[in-house]
């Protein structure tokens, strides 16, 4: 197909381009990201179509877990066979015994069905997965990650998940509305993410957790987090506010837990596949590369840090991100392992 003659409307109508904006599969996303790099002359049309389509992407409203469970129970009752028995007095006992055995079997089956099963979700490199947890909370799991939980979350019980890799959490508030402070809330209304030495406890918020190679960082977007770190027999705790980042490094266990203000949107931008800059200081972008990607960044031209960036760059892949940053800033980007130079 000849994409180079594409107008905004052609992009809009293109099913593959729509799938890219919807973020449905990795192959389509990388195709269009690469396409943009190769066809910079079409960037205006590309971005206009992307902006229009992004506005239309919606989420079905969460259905309350209680409603769903009630309806499911109703349907299960329908599925269960209703034995109709007419029994003469003479044959009553064997039938009662048989009925009793059937009930016992159903009971055992039900008990086994209800017994806790552990759930585990994994992603491959460059794959993202959207998960709906039993309480209606949502998780976007980034590539190369793993999320575990026990499958028997009953309403009114503590919610716990174990994360390796990176995930963005949109947690449902299940506590009574008067409970607003996570620090004083009872554990049965909390949602806790265990990531390495760190426990992230919340009531209902949106936040990003990244736990890779001994390095854990947590960025809060809305609400409140009670973060605890357990190591060497003692526990440290901090309370986080929106826009704050806390990071820990297994290599420096003595470093105290400290909070820093960051642009929280940057740290969850991987879920949408692009970073949006709006008159953003380059210094903030460099901070993101350091904290978000664990890179060591050297900027050879200090004037660069004074500049501001506006626009949208693809970020699902670090190479693509660095490449387009270099182009936007008109600088050479070199990378050796975890070290990046902006010349």
């Amino acid at each position: 197909m000849n994409y180079t003659a594409y107008s905004t409307e052609d992009f809009l109508a293109d099913e593959s381009f729509q799938a890219f904006v919807l973020g449905h599969d990795v192959a389509t996303t990388s195709f269009w990201q690469q396409w943009l790099i190769e066809n910079p002359g079409k960037a205006a049309e590309f971005h206009e179509a992307q902006t229009i389509l992004r506005q239309l992407v919606g989420r079905p409203q969460p259905v309350s877990e209680a409603l769903k469970q009630e309806e499911l129970a109703k349907f299960r009752r329908y599925l269960q066979p209703k034995p109709v028995l007419r029994v003469s007095r003479r044959h009553r006992w064997p039938v009662i015994l048989a009925a009793f055995s059937v009930m016992l079997l159903i009971g055992i089956g039900f008990w086994r069905y209800m017994a806790p099963t552990n759930l585990q979700y994994n992603t491959l490199a460059h794959q993202q997965r959207q998960l709906l947890l039993p309480d209606g909370s949502r998780v976007v799991l980034n590539g190369n990650s793993e999320l575990k939980l026990s499958g028997d979350w009953a309403p009114g019980q503590a919610r716990e998940v174990w994360l390796k890799g990176e995930a963005y959490f949109i947690v449902r508030h299940t506590a009574p509305a008067r409970l607003k402070t996570v620090a004083t809330a009872p554990s049965n209304v909390k949602f806790t993410v265990h990531a390495g030495p760190v426990d992230v406890a919340v009531l209902g918020t949106q936040f990003n957790v990244r736990h890779w190679a001994g390095h854990t960082n947590v960025v809060l977007r809305t609400g409140q987090i009670q973060l605890s770190r357990h190591q060497a027999g003692h526990t440290e705790q901090v309370l986080m506010k929106p826009g704050e980042l806390v990071s820990t490094d297994a290599a420096r266990p003595q470093a105290p837990l400290t909070k820093r203000a960051v642009k929280a949107d940057f740290y969850s931008a991987w879920t949408s596949g692009h970073l949006d800059f709006n008159d953003t200081p380059v210094a903030d972008v460099v901070a993101l590369l350091r904290d978000g990607y664990g890179l060591q960044v050297t900027v050879n031209n200090p004037n660069l840090l004074q500049q501001n960036l506006t626009g949208s760059v693809p970020n699902q892949d670090l190479e693509v991100l660095l490449n387009s940053l270099g182009k936007s800033l008109d600088v050479q980007v070199r990378r050796e392992g975890q070290h990046v130079w902006l010349d």
Partner: peptide
């Protein structure tokens, strides 16, 4: 029953989008 659970939210929302009638949608899914 597993399919019911898996698709309930999407079906419920779609039905609600079409009719705006929660009870009707619940009955129809059943």
């Amino acid at each position: 029953a597993a399919l019911f659970e898996l698709h309930y939210e999407a079906l419920f929302n779609y039905g609600l989008k079409l009719t705006g009638d929660e009870e009707l949608v619940k009955d129809s899914i059943q």
